[in-house]
Design a protein around this nucleic acid. Structure first.
Lengths: 222, 222
DNA sequence: TTTTTTACTTTGAATAATCAAAATTACCTG
DNA sequence: CAGGTAATTTTGATTATTCAAAGTAAAAAA
């Protein structure tokens, strides 16, 4: 079985790869930062992962997962997200802090325990922040969501996902009703101010900077 | 925070120490076997734990925990046992297999999650096998239980604990009603055959060898 | 008491993961 | 294209944990 370290490298590459639309290599700098090691360490590790055929390594260009690597990464992501949901739904923990907890547990939960959790939760398809839960055999469909920074104005939109794990941000989002499932409208876009104002159903309007807005994914409310 | 390895050494010393009645040193051989390393490795590790003041090391005699070491060991044991109970009670997992699961989770469950579990279970005092769950501040009272190998005959006895984690044995015990809470009587003791026969309430009598009998702790049913 | 056995410790070496700092390469900029 | 900057790789070392095998001490047997 892969070590915790290996699982973390693969997970971060997978996350980074989807973050940049699935195509192209993940540069070493990004990876090193995501994993929290110095660039030199990442290089060393990546070479041994390439050796094990878990990723392709193009020196000075970057890395991308092989099918085997992606399979492992998805397993980790699945554990992480199921655990998150479990902590919220069953142990009633705070939306904003379950990410950190899951960071540890994702490496030690056995398949048996995970299956129980999956069953108990009714085979959910998304975690508390709206991130999809990969299933054993991989689909992982790309949805048609976009960030609040680029979504259409004045139309009813549904929040599908928050792509940020900072507890501060999550608490802020929660306080303003910006959680998966919320319906809202963009009332104003201020390009020069680098901001958008949104009005969640039954809530006071909020204005977000583009960077924050991009982390709130929405789709048109159907 | 102590590493998983350190936690395991401390846990095993603590278990071994109570197993031998709380007094005297745990010999290195026992420890090495319990932790699953070669004797040389245990010696090295123990020296560094002594350095950190987690145990006292008497070369060629053995080790015993310092108060600091015992505190850490109890924390691990608490996590282990609460997790076991949680797996049985909430996730409805098999009595016989939760030990192995808890062996991993005991090192990664945070205090926050543990507190939720503790609350959800109503601050339990024993795990599914009857082992006491240490509380933050340490008591851990010695009960007056004894093994079936030495308990009084023909009197109503209550099973308080099974001191064995082998799934095979646990399944056997379960099949014969030998679980914490069961009332039974010793109907016959056969010293020469190295065996005892017990009759659990409403079950067929079973005969156990002394070694197995010693792992079933009972107290007189009050 | 001498010998033998058993338990334990030491030694030398390996693996996984890491870092700091030096060396290299690729990319821009003028 | 020359020069500089930023990203990346190399190198040399460190820490934690482990093992196998050789050495040593203490306990048991003779």
């Amino acid at each position: 079985m892969p070590s915790v370290t290996v699982e973390n490298y693969l997970k971060q590459i997978c996350l980074e790869q989807t973050r940049r639309g699935g195509d192209g290599l993940v540069p070493m700098g990004r990876l090193a930062e995501a994993v929290g090691v110095t660039p030199g360490t990442a290089t060393t590790m990546v070479k041994s992962l390439a050796e094990a055929d878990l990723l392709h390594y193009a020196p000075r260009a970057g890395v991308e997962l092989t099918p085997a690597g992606r399979r492992l990464a998805h397993r980790v992501l699945r554990r992480h997200r199921l655990v998150e949901l479990f902590l919220v739904e069953v142990l009633h923990m705070d939306w904003a802090e379950v990410h950190e907890e899951a960071e540890e547990l994702e490496h030690t939960i056995s398949d048996k325990v995970l299956d129980r959790i999956d069953e108990l939760l009714g085979h959910p398809t998304a975690d508390p922040h709206g991130s999809p839960i990969p299933r054993a055999d991989q689909p992982l469909v790309h949805d048609d969501s976009r960030g609040l920074d680029t979504a259409a104005e004045h139309q009813p939109l549904t929040v599908v996902r928050i792509v940020d794990h900072d507890p501060e941000f999550l608490r802020f989002a929660e306080a303003h009703g910006l959680m998966p499932g919320t319906t809202l409208r963009i009332t104003e876009r201020l390009p020069h101010a680098d901001a958008v104002t949104v009005e969640p159903d039954g809530q006071t309007p909020v204005t977000l900077g583009t960077a924050a807005a991009a982390r709130v994914l929405v789709k048109s409310a159907s």
